[in-house]
Design a binder for these strands. Structure first.
Length: 113
DNA sequence: TGGTTGACAGTCC
DNA sequence: CGGACTGCCAACC
């Protein structure tokens, strides 16, 4: 294990991502593309990159961010692991239903900026 | 349907 | 300090 990373450097870009994330109301989710678009970012991957480090985790509701395909995508680096299940449960608990790892009512659960 | 390319930010060497 | 690779993706063919 590399104990070199107790607190990543909170870059202004990441702060912006987290700020937008906190703007998401409970019971709704957003996608990387939408978030990137809102941030004027051409690459949604950059957004995911910020969440991947998530220096504010688990305080940052990164579980409210899903892929543009309305799929859960990944979580903590696990695309199909127990973490993903936990993510779906969390969202389901907030009112976001997931079927087979896919958003149930994207028209209602998908939050747009 | 699946595979490939593109683009941005961060971290590593 | 500079360069190169990677990464919870998106869009196109």
């Amino acid at each position: 294990m590399t104990p070199a990373s107790p607190q990543a450097a909170p870059t202004p870009f990441q702060q912006r991502v987290y700020d937008a994330l906190l703007k998401i109301p409970r019971g709704q989710v957003t996608t990387y593309g939408l978030l990137a678009r809102y941030l004027r970012c051409k690459s949604a991957q950059a957004v995911g990159q910020a969440l991947r480090r998530n220096p504010f985790a688990p305080r940052v509701p990164c579980h409210r961010v899903i892929a543009s395909s309305l799929q859960i995508g990944g979580y903590v680096g696990d695309r199909t692991g127990p973490e993903i299940i936990r993510k779906q449960k969390l969202l389901a608990r907030e009112g976001v239903g997931f079927v087979n790892g896919t958003l149930r009512d994207p028209s209602k659960k998908l939050f747009k900026f």
